[in-house]
Nucleic acid binder design. Structure first.
Length: 915
RNA sequence: AGGCCCGUAGCUCAGUCUGGUUAGAGCGCUACCUUGACACGGUAGAGGUCAACGGUUCGAGUCCGUUCGGGCCUACCA
């Protein structure tokens, strides 16, 4: 029986619902062709980490939409999964291995030492063993993420879970590589790439984060070979001079007309190198002459290609000087810089040094300064892929929201560069390329070749590198559905209807998915791409572990309940604006959950008092068979409230749906919040309270009960996408016929559109105004406790009738002892008369009125009204306004003027009486 | 170097695209209320020259321009 606690404790109900939803496979997509489908693939979290608050926002937004679409009767697929996070996972596993080997280490340096030791041990243990460790890690960490998703109530289809390194998925990856290679869109070559000397791998442009740092610009003299003077170059990296193979000047630069074609002696190395002319050189910068180091600078590399200059690699994979650096061999890049500068100074070749702020690139993963390095890598040609991806967005096959991300996407696409896709790592998809041991032939194939097509030998070595993780993630929307096989799922659910992601991976992932999807499936991978906000802390700082301002979703979930956290996120999620998040915010929506709980508690407690037979009838009446509710005819007093609440339900449902359709989560959540708290609870529930708390034993289900139960149930449905747990729980506590059903599979909007009732809303509104006017008057008079008597008068016959009908309700809600209802106006000379637009109101027998406070209040009111009136009059006396403004605006102003004049007059009269 | 976003109540933000009532919300604050769902509550209230200046317009928080302040992104300036 009614053992409903006064305070809602989410922890007592959430975990069990979460498990039941998953265990019952409630969210398994049916594939039922009779229903409209709605599909979305989860942005796969990394197996490396557990979920953070940003994930929770993402999953909240997605889940709201998925639940909403499902409740609209659609066949919804939300496909879950994870990606293998090549570089990040490898780092973590290395560190683990290092930690095991050196358990005694501690202190700030421990991590780094473990990492180095792990890297060494990895090479020692070999590829196979290391990968075993990675898989082991993946099982553990992946399990954690899965548990978190379940706990957060994400309505995903677990039967279709995917991992980017599943066998089927890996086959898709190989297929894509081979196809693109055969088409010439993937190629291998020697280019200057971003090399991370710590991770020991190439990384793509996007994986390099730029940062401004204070540095220097060194001016170095390169003497002409013939001894006639010198040419001065400016550089931020003097140590790379050891690998210079030319000096370049702009051909149009008058200063260097005679220099081009001559030779200079490379300082310290005493090598003669040419001065070449190349357009790329900016005459404005530095001295207008630039040293050319083809193996360590992408620009220089291009110059070298054009001018047929050799490339000398003076730095190795660990950023130490190679044998090419002669006497500097073995030095670290920064030690080498010191040595070079010292020697230049000694040789009097360093002309000057200037302070200079330069932008420096660091590895996104480990923050080491990346080194531009010439090496053999695999690349994907992006221009041919970008064209269709630009058109798809420009022509609307894919819509990107909020709108300004569309422009950012197009801008990036239009300036795209080739993508370095090979990584010198072990954890990931091996590149399906083999080199013949006999003749060196390169063979790219779906499977290991049996014999060389050129020399017929049968010994090969496979390319040791793996693919960038984003290469495989780029296939996510279709590879998860079985592509390239035409599986039923692929046919049914591809292209996806929607993709939601954070801005930080728009280029990494979103753009590449679009390009690859269009290329490989001839289809956009999704029709809509929505970019969600970033969750920041209350001071709008980015959350980070080092700052210690992170909000851990599981922690706050346990403390405040998933529903509260979800709701706090949703109601803060205005498109295009970052979210300032705080536990205070969560607390206020925990209060909302508590409010819902207590409304239910009230209803359920009274429901218990009804005879069992009536409850059975109610259970039947709550089955939404016709998928729409409207108010059952009721007593005159209650009918208005019923009509009103169903009208509001119908209107609010529509507004929420409109907001959700445009990803205005904040608005949708607010609408549900405001309706439930400030309409359903504050007015409807209060209105019908006496009727349902009455203890008499009814023979049959009363319309009051039927309407209340239905309105409450319909409210739960509206709230369910935002607060799945509490709504599911309460929905089940209502009398039900089928115990195994779930609110998540029931219709979203239960109130029928026919329930929209403007007349009921208007009438209810006037009564509400009367109650509020009375409360105001009582508060002003300091009489909240006394239950004073009052008079109300109106010149409208209908209002008189309305007031008469609802006199009892008004008395109760306003806390009045009695109410005279009169036709006409109230005498203006009686102190305390409040004039509304449609009625006058007066407290009678008011003794202790604070005249001073009353006067102050009235003065203020008068000023406010006066200002508003002046504005209206000014507008109406303006001929331009009368001539040009639309009629309804002018009429509105006229009406306002009339109302304000009336109100102002009454306030002035009241003031006069006081004096 | 280019581009984007933001500046509205003490705090966090809606509202600006599509100009037109007396500019809203949540939290916080003040007063009153232990009324039989809820003090994670109820009732009422205080609090804003919408960053500044100029322009367009009958009318600007909303459109345009400039300035100031804050944040972000892209880029091969050696």
């Amino acid at each position: 029986m009614t053992d409903i606690p006064k305070v809602y404790s989410p922890e007592t109900i959430e975990p069990s619902w979460a498990e039941r939803w998953a265990a019952q496979e409630l969210y398994r997509a049916t594939g039922d062709p009779a229903r409209r489908r709605f599909s979305l693939a989860i942005p796969p979290p990394n197996v490396t980490g557990s979920l953070h608050i940003g994930h929770m926002l993402e999953h909240t937004e997605i889940d709201i939409l998925m639940r909403w679409h499902r409740m609209r009767g659609e066949d919804v697929l939300w496909l879950p999964g994870m990606d293998h996070a090549s570089i990040a996972t490898q780092m973590i596993v290395e560190r683990e291995i290092g930690r095991e080997a050196l358990p005694a280490l501690e202190g700030p340096d421990a991590m780094r030492r473990w990492q180095m030791e792990g890297q060494r041990l990895r090479l020692e243990m070999g590829r196979e063993k290391f990968l075993e460790r990675c898989w082991q890690w993946k099982e553990e960490s992946g399990g954690t993420i899965r548990k978190q998703l379940v706990r957060l109530g994400a309505s995903v289809d677990w039967s279709r879970e995917r991992f980017t390194m599943d066998a089927d998925y890996s086959r898709s990856v190989v297929e894509v590589f081979v196809r693109l290679y055969e088409e010439g869109l993937i190629y291998r070559g020697d280019y200057v790439v971003n090399w991370c000397p710590r991770c020991q791998t190439a990384v793509s442009d996007l994986e390099v984060v730029h940062e401004e740092r204070a540095g220097h610009l060194w001016f170095i003299r390169y003497p002409f070979e013939d001894g006639s003077g010198s040419i001065t170059v400016a550089t931020t990296r003097p140590e790379t001079l050891l690998g210079d193979t030319a000096v370049a000047v702009n051909p149009k630069d008058a200063r260097y007309q005679k220099a081009a074609g001559r030779r200079v002696i490379l300082p310290l190395m005493n090598r003669a190198i040419p001065v070449v002319a190349d357009e790329m050189v900016d005459p404005e910068f530095g001295t207008g002459a630039v040293k050319v180091t083809p193996a360590h600078d992408p620009n220089d590399f291009e110059i070298a290609q054009r001018r047929h200059l050799p490339a000398l690699r003076i730095l190795d994979e660990e950023a130490r000087m190679t044998a090419e650096a002669g006497p500097y061999r073995g030095l670290d890049r920064y030690a080498a810089r010191e040595a070079v500068l010292r020697d230049l100074k000694a040789a009097n070749l360093l002309e000057k040094t200037e302070d200079y702020v330069l932008s420096i690139g660091a590895c996104q993963r480990c923050k080491s300064i990346v080194e531009p390095l010439l090496s053999k890598q695999w690349f994907m040609k992006m221009r041919p892929l970008a064209g269709p991806a630009i058109r798809a967005v420009e022509q609307g096959q894919i819509s990107i929201t909020p709108d300004h991300y569309r422009k950012i996407y197009l801008d990036w696409m239009n300036n795209i560069h080739d993508w370095c896709i090979s990584r010198q790592l072990w954890w990931g998809h091996s590149i399906p390329a083999w080199t013949c041991n006999g003749c060196g032939e390169l063979i790219v194939a779906r499977e290991a070749p049996a014999e060389c097509r050129r020399c017929r030998k049968n010994a090969f070595r496979q390319d040791p590198d793996v693919l960038d993780t984003w290469f495989s993630s780029g296939l996510w929307p279709f590879a998860t559905l079985g592509w390239p096989e035409p599986t039923p799922d692929l046919i049914r659910f591809y292209p996806n209807d929607l993709m939601i992601m954070g801005f930080d991976i728009l280029f990494f992932w979103g753009a590449r998915m679009i390009m690859l999807g269009l290329k490989l499936t001839k289809n956009a991978p999704f029709r809509k791409l929505h970019i969600h906000a970033l969750v920041r802390d209350a001071e709008r700082q980015k959350m980070s572990k080092t700052k210690g301002n992170v909000i851990d979703p599981l922690e706050v979930t346990e403390k405040y309940g998933t529903d509260a956290v979800r709701f706090a996120l949703a109601i803060s999620a205005a498109p295009g604006t970052d979210i300032a998040f705080s536990t205070e915010k969560i607390e206020s929506y925990r209060a909302f959950a508590n409010k819902i709980w207590n409304a239910a508690r009230f209803i359920l407690m009274n429901l218990e008092k009804l005879p069992a037979r009536i409850r059975d009838d109610l259970a039947q009446a709550l089955e939404p068979k016709e998928r729409s509710f409207s108010p059952a005819p009721n007593s005159e007093q209650l009918a208005l409230a019923d009509r009103w609440v169903f009208s509001r339900l119908a209107a609010v449902s529509g507004e929420i749906e409109a907001a959700l359709a445009e990803y205005r989560f904040h608005e949708a959540a607010y609408l549900a919040y405001h309706f439930f708290w400030h309409e359903f609870c504050d007015w409807y529930l209060e209105w019908v309270k006496p009727e349902i708390t009455r203890a008499d034993s009814a023979e049959s289900l009363s319309p009051a009960w039927l309407n209340l139960a239905r309105a409450f149930q319909a409210s739960l449905h509206l709230l369910h996408p935002f607060m799945p747990f509490i709504t599911e729980e309460l929905w089940h506590r209502l009398p039900r016929e089928a115990a195994d059903a779930s609110i998540s599979l029931a219709p979203f909007a239960l109130a029928a559109e026919e329930a929209l009732d403007r007349e009921a809303e208007a009438d209810f509104g006037v009564l509400r105004d009367l109650v509020v006017t009375a409360r105001n008057a009582e508060a002003d008079a300091g009489l909240q406790k006394q239950k004073p008597h009052a008079r109300v008068a109106s010149e409208e016959t209908e209002l008189i009738g309305l007031f008469e009908t609802h006199r009892e309700t008004v008395l109760r809600l306003a806390g009045l002892g009695g109410l005279e209802i009169e036709r006409g106006k109230l005498p203006a000379d009686v102190s305390g008369t409040v004039a509304g637009a449609r009625f006058d109101f007066l407290l009678v027998d008011v003794r202790a009125v604070d005249h001073h406070a009353e006067r102050a209040r009235l003065e203020k009111e008068k000023d406010k009204l006066g200002e508003a009136l002046a504005r209206a009059e000014q507008q109406l006396s303006n001929e331009g306004f009368l001539r040009r403004a639309p009629r309804e605006v002018v009429e509105g102003a006229e009406r306002r003027r009339a109302e304000l004049t009336d109100q102002l007059r009454k306030v002035a009269e009241a003031l006069e009486r006081l004096n």
